[in-house]
């Protein structure tokens, strides 16, 4: 007996929106604030982007969940410790904006 599931397409069906990261940094931060609030079981308006996530009681499950959501949305590999390495919403958003900008540059100039 061999077990093999139906193979699924490894690529997303729809191309990713890739707006210019610099223009969309506030959008990214808003999205991130909303997701962080969800995983910390708080309202988005209660999350201050400059307050350390540790102060809101982030645990390893919430931290890995946030990592998973970022990976899914932006299709980039993210360290499971991102919420510890960049301890505020603002710090994570800035880091992501930079990485997405790097990727955009790489895409434009594939040398």
């Amino acid at each position: 007996m061999s077990i093999a599931p139906e193979t699924r397409d490894a690529r997303p069906a729809e191309p990713m929106d890739r707006p210019s990261p610099r223009d969309n940094a506030p959008g990214l931060e808003l999205w991130l604030t909303e997701r962080v609030a969800f995983h910390l079981r708080k309202a988005a308006e209660d999350i201050d982007p400059d307050t350390p996530l540790a102060d809101y009681g982030i645990d390893s499950v919430a931290a890995i969940s946030i990592c998973g959501e970022i990976e899914e949305k932006f299709r980039i590999p993210v360290s499971p410790t991102i919420a510890y390495d960049f301890p505020t919403v603002h710090a994570i958003a800035t880091h992501l904006t930079e990485r997405l900008a790097d990727r955009a540059t790489d895409d434009e100039d594939p040398s």
């Binding site: 077990i3 599931p5 490894a10 997303p12 899914e72 299709r75």
Partner: peptide, 9 residues
Amino acid sequence: DGPDMRPEQ
């Protein structure tokens, strides 16, 4: 494997 799962048997 990115967003997907790659089986090793």
